[in-house]
Design a protein around this nucleic acid. Structure first.
Length: 469
RNA sequence: GGUCCCAUCGUCUAGCGGUCAGGACAUCGGCCUCUCACGCCGAAAACACGGGUUCGAUUCCCGUUGGGAUCACCA
């Protein structure tokens, strides 16, 4: 009988949720959902000095936007110190850990010297066998094996062998009594029954330390999977100078969460040739076996293209929900009603972001159209006045206001005026939207409705008249 | 510097000994067309290098080179 998969995402609240973190969160979440397991959220705030509530809030907000939900937590490491102490005590009593009273200065000097002589900057084990007892400024160190090697059975990278000589007696409890990262993580993962640990490549080097801790604590090892880093355009680790790092920045730029997720997962994971995935498809198809081993470069062009595709393929209701804030931001009060959905339908094929879509949607909601100066000059000319009046009459006469009847009306006007559609469409477009670029003329007219269209056409006619005199 | 990881078009990737090395984004042509898009058709574009193993290597092994990560009382 198979055990239920339990994964986790343990951000440290020292900043917003960034792209790389979002990806490991996503991998863990997808794997848990795919296997109908559990996904645990844990806030690693043992670094009291750098952890903030604001960061925690920002991270939760970002996860919520992405639609990554958790089954347990959030747990806070800062509230679990008793548990850590208990385990440290256990290690101390079995002789697998010891107190160390070496000062920071002597440690620094030691490292300095080691670097200069080309040696490894490791702790030299001064206090290892002194049998010291607790003092005010003592730290607790783990007694690591001096020889042999530790093997990480990594599901994405295969077996990784690290010589134990590479590791020193690392600190598991600071002099202020707070336990360090490696200890806290292991104790948490043991006590939370985490059996699958998927995390960034940058953790490979302390995984053997954690394995040693698991062994010392007599606990079963979880499955490890280290996913490669996300790099910037210059192949350096993604950082602020590569542009936006924060997940919510992408929300604010008008990306759909599902598009962002889709992009993120494809950066380091593949399913044959498939590029486009809905969230449900991802849950259905995500497995650890298909995670790639090489680091990937974050490519905003591809993200943008994928966003456009998601906008195109998502049902208008879903898009509406995310679009509304962008309209509000532009002083346009709109609801996710049928009208807005119809608006979205005309815009989705030509919008790469929600911001772009909002810009393009404003004319639908405007009470009065202001013409782009160049557009008006070029298209709202006296020569078009007559055809425009003919069109107004034709549209007023319509009982049914749908695309076929509109096309008929236009056709009649075109024949009477002896003009091609191209000649009349642009002036009408400017009259209705104020711009030269917009959705298709007929679909747009239908959405706008008979009254509004006629009103705007009459306004345009007036505009032309005034211009003549 | 030590240790560890990685290496297919510019980018994300498929490939799991025999393929005209496939797809997507971006780029460049063309078609469609009421603008802009979408869509469609086409072009250009890659196995880092050197040794092995093998009848045969993009694929397996070793080395070189290049890139990345990490070496804290940070996580």
């Amino acid at each position: 009988m198979n055990k239920q998969i339990i994964t986790r995402f343990p951000p440290s609240p020292t900043g917003y949720l960034h792209v790389g973190g979002a990806r490991t969160a996503l991998f863990n979440w997808l794997y848990a959902r795919h296997t109908q397991g559990k996904f645990v959220l844990r806030i690693e705030d043992t670094d009291v000095a750098r952890s903030t509530q604001a960061s925690t809030d920002a991270i939760l907000e970002a996860l919520e936007w992405l639609g990554i939900d958790w089954d347990e937590g959030p747990y806070f490491q800062s509230q679990r110190s008793d548990i850590y102490s208990e385990y440290i005590e256990k290690l101390l009593s079995t002789g697998l850990a010891y107190y160390c009273t070496c000062s920071r200065d002597t440690l620094d000097a030691m490292r300095q010297k080691a670097m200069e002589t080309g040696g490894k900057p490791k702790y030299d084990g001064t206090c290892r066998n002194k049998g010291l007892s607790k003092t005010d400024d003592a730290v607790v160190r783990f007694k690591a094996p001096l020889t042999g090697s530790t093997i990480i059975k990594d599901v994405v990278k295969g077996n990784i062998v690290i010589p134990n000589a590479e590791m020193d007696d690392f600190i598991i409890q600071r002099s202020d009594g707070v336990s360090t990262y490696n200890l806290a993580v292991v104790v948490d993962d043991i006590t939370m029954a985490i059996n699958t640990v998927i995390r960034g490549d940058d953790h490979v080097n302390n995984t053997p330390k954690q394995i040693l801790l698991y062994q010392a604590l007599n606990a079963p090892l979880p499955t490890f999977g280290h996913v490669p880093m996300v790099l910037g355009k210059d192949r350096a680790r993604l950082s602020k100078r590569h542009g936006a790092m924060s997940v919510t920045a992408y929300r604010d730029m008008g990306y759909l969460p599902d598009a962002f997720l889709n992009y993120l997962v494809r950066l380091g994971w593949s399913y044959g040739d498939q590029e486009f995935f809905t969230k449900d498809e991802l849950i259905d198809k995500f497995t650890l076996e298909n995670i790639g081993r090489s680091p990937g470069i974050f490519d905003t062009d591809k993200l943008l293209a994928l966003n456009a595709e998601h906008i195109r393929k998502s049902p208008p209701v879903a898009v509406a929900r995310h679009l509304i804030p962008f309209l509000k931001q532009r002083d346009c009060e709109a609801d996710a009603n049928e009208f807005t959905q119809a608006v979205i339908l005309t815009l989705s094929v030509r919008s790469k972001t929600l911001a772009e879509m909002a810009d393009g949607a404003l004319f639908y909601y405007a009470s009065k159209i202001t013409y782009d100066a160049k557009a008006a000059k070029k298209f709202l000319k006296p020569a078009i006045a007559e055809p425009l009046n003919l069109l107004i009459k034709a549209l007023e006469a319509l009982d049914v206001f749908d695309e076929p009847s509109l096309e008929n009306a236009f056709k009649t006007v075109m024949e009477t005026a002896g003009m091609k559609l191209g000649k009349i469409a642009q002036p009408v477009r400017v009259a209705l939207t104020g711009k030269t670029v917009s959705p298709g003329i007929f679909e747009m007219i239908v959405v706008l409705g008979q009254d509004t269209v006629i009103e705007r056409l009459k306004d345009a006619a007036k505009f032309i008249e005034n211009r003549q005199t």
